[in-house]
Design a protein around this nucleic acid. Structure first.
Lengths: 353, 353
DNA sequence: TTGTAGGCGTTATCAG
DNA sequence: CTGATAACGCCTACAA
């Protein structure tokens, strides 16, 4: 049995463990609870003098409204749910940070869940967020368990997909063109004269971003009459060590690539490490490119050529869209932000011969 | 009387906008709502056959319990709140990720807020989390607005401070010895023969970690009969650019440091960039050390000597402690994890003469 | 093992 | 502009 002070002690003076409720504020201010509620939710409807009395009483008692009761009655929780692959990954962390800041400015809180690239887990945690009564939901990517959309439909509240724009316009989404990112990058490498390409990618299953990025590269190659040799493709979960291991395999090939496209900066830096250890010079022996333009890549020697993606913009736009929808204001269901190659020292012409 | 569409109506196209409630499940399973509730919350009290019927009915109707109603009645929301400085910062993101994973395993969700190093904002968002009815709270660091603890006391629910251990044992806390981190690092640099030290630190106001790390360095120097020249100290907000600017100032001094202690890896890498641009060689001209042993530092050339801090352990321990307290199980209020120097190429003996 | 019934604290409705 | 009152959907005694 617990030795904790029990709630029966609350009768004792000075040990008032009772929660302060609207009723207490109402009594102190000499009004009804309805008026207290109005002061909290639509102050303009209340006489300034009454309002002041209530505000003071609330402050004096340190009244904190009971969110659950409010949600139950009003069907609004002032919470937004977000399900992301992992925020032990700089990108999603930054987007999520932007999202949270924007929500906070508008008086919303963020309930966050990860799924670690398991779409079944994503479905499960999305259900938990609905259980908590979030007013709207944010997801990453376009690939999801088919049941997710049924669940969302039942739930009947706004949601938005991020980091990609649904080409079929079935689901509101904000992001950028993942396909174009690697397409442009590959064009850049082709222009430098490369013909032997390698690809370091995240597993594409359930990951539309990785899939689109791989496709973008292949499209650019096809336009140049080239085809990606599948033996020069390595898949790895997003971690430096895994990327490094994948790159070691590519370097050990009889004729390794002279240009490596990594689908994100973490992979690119892992590849750089493998090159350093193997004595392969960048960019003299191999050019390496990333996507997302993170600090990790920018601070390498040489600096990593990468694609700047709208990491912050996505978070802000997602927040703005959802809040606009919740408040019945105008909004855009689909938004695609521009991207841009950032040239640094990790790319160059292939070695002659 | 309820006007809810019954389960037979739900096939009707387009009209099923009514939320499915326990009542609907009860009707379909031929039991009372009390039994539905029992199946959800204490299944072992229900006859296996009844349980199965209810479970099936719930699945069929895709019943999602209404968390707000549950919270209101049961005083448990199954949500844990965390307030962190920023998760656009790899460290806190990783700790938070570990925290979230652990909570998820135990059936809790995470409500997250940032304060961007503003203790007033921290107090405010903590109040919001309480409003949402979180069952417990996690904070970063030992420095907080004095009113925060009053608020927490009113709230009467568990909380834990992280990334430091309260020396006075006033507040449950899990972390490590920030003072020791830079103390050990400075000893290492002293042993290499350095005497002219620089410090690159976060602003110490309201940031006990930064303060303790600065103090640890000064303590080691004092033991060696040295004193840190305040002109060789630069303060910067946590960003590469700010750190770089701070380091540029130190490098421009008449006699710049031969050893730089940065209070975290981001600062150290910013300093490295400033050195590269200024043509200052690492470690021949200057040794640089970080704290936290992040990928960012590990992948630099040369690799950054840093202190491994218990980033993951803190998150797991915080989750475990709070859940144990919520469930009335045994737990440790105070936990300090070990740290360790990771030697890489960024440190060496000072140039002769 | 299961059902009945009341209320958690707030807000929406309606009347004054 | 303000007050009285009835839900919101669930859980928990208590009774059967």
């Amino acid at each position: 049995m617990s030795l904790k002070t029990t709630s029966t002690d609350r009768a004792r003076p000075g040990d008032s463990r009772m929660r302060v409720g609207a009723k207490d504020v109402a009594r102190l201010a000499g009004v009804s609870t309805a008026t207290v509620s109005r002061v909290m939710n639509s102050p303009e409807q209340v006489d300034p003098d009454t309002r002041r009395r209530v505000t003071e009483a609330a402050a004096r008692l340190r009244y904190v409204p009971h969110g659950a009761a409010r949600s139950l009655r009003s069907h609004r929780s002032k919470m937004i749910g977000a399900v992301i692959p992992s925020f032990d990954y700089a990108l999603y962390a930054r987007t999520t940070s932007a999202l949270q800041q924007r929500l906070d400015e508008r008086g919303y809180s963020l309930v966050l869940a990860e799924h670690h690239y398991d779409l079944g887990a994503e479905l499960r945690v999305a259900g938990q967020l609905m259980e908590h009564g979030v007013d709207a939901l944010v997801f990453v990517g376009l690939d999801h368990d088919p049941n997710l959309f049924g669940l969302l439909d039942d739930y009947g509240r706004p949601y938005v997909l991020t980091w990609g724009v649904d080409p079929y316009r079935r689901h509101p989404s904000v992001g950028f063109d993942n396909h174009a990112a690697t397409y442009e990058m590959t064009r850049h490498l082709l222009a430098l004269g490369h013909t032997r390409f390698g690809l370091l990618s995240a597993p594409v299953d359930g990951n539309d971003r990785a899939r689109a990025r791989g496709a973008g590269m292949r499209a650019a190659l096809a336009e140049a009459g080239l085809q990606l040799d599948e033996s020069r493709v390595a898949y790895a979960p997003i971690s430096l060590a895994a990327a490094q291991a994948g790159m070691e395999r590519l370097l050990a090939l009889p004729s390794p690539p002279t240009a490596l496209v990594a689908t994100n900066d973490v992979f690119a830096v892992g590849a750089m490490m493998a090159c350093r250890q193997a004595g392969v010079r960048i960019p003299q022996d191999i050019s390496i490119t990333g996507v997302d333009n993170t600090d990790l890549g920018a601070t390498q020697t040489p600096g990593l050529t990468s694609i700047r993606t709208p990491i912050i913009e996505i978070g802000v736009a997602a927040a703005d869209q959802l809040i606009a929808r919740l408040e019945g204001r105008e909004h855009q269901d689909f938004q695609s932000f521009p991207i841009e190659i950032i040239h640094r020292g990790s790319t160059g012409k292939p070695a002659a011969g």
